[in-house]
Computed example of a mutant assay.
Amino acid sequence: MRPTPDFLERGHDPADPSPWLASYLDRSTPLPDEVKSAWLKDSSSRSRQYLLPLFRPLARAFIILIQIFKMVLPKRWSHSRLLHRILAWGLKRFVSPEANWLIMRHFHLGSQILAFIGTNSPAPITTTPLKPYKVEDYRDDLFVKHDINLFNFVIRLNQALRDQNLDMHPPERLDFSMIHEPDLPLESMPQGKLNFLDLQSAIELFTPLYQLLLTDNDFWRAANSLQLDETIGIYAAQLLSAPHHLILVNNNHPLVPLSTLRAGHRLVLHGLSSEMLHALLTQMRDAQQGAPEPAPLS
Rank of each mutant, 00 (worst) to 15 (best):
R2A: 13
P5R: 06
R10T: 06
R10A: 13
G11C: 07
D16A: 12
D16T: 06
P17H: 04
P17N: 02
P30C: 04
L31D: 00
E34Q: 09
S43P: 01
S44G: 07
L52I: 00
L54R: 12
L54W: 00
R56D: 15
P57D: 14
F62I: 01
R76F: 09
S78A: 15
R81S: 14
R81Y: 14
L83S: 04
S96I: 03
L102D: 12
S111M: 05
F116H: 05
I117C: 13
G118A: 13
S121T: 07
P122L: 08
I125D: 03
T126D: 11
Y133K: 11
L142D: 01
F143A: 08
V144C: 00
H146E: 11
L157N: 02
N158P: 00
A160H: 10
D163M: 04
D167I: 02
S188D: 15
G192V: 04
F196W: 14
A202D: 06
L205M: 13
Q211T: 14
L213S: 11
L214G: 06
N217M: 03
D218H: 15
F219V: 02
S225M: 12
L228N: 02
A237V: 09
Q238D: 11
I247H: 10
N252M: 06
S259G: 10
L261K: 10
A263N: 10
G264I: 01
H270C: 07
S273M: 13
S274C: 12
L281S: 10
T282W: 06
Q288R: 09
P292K: 02
E293I: 02
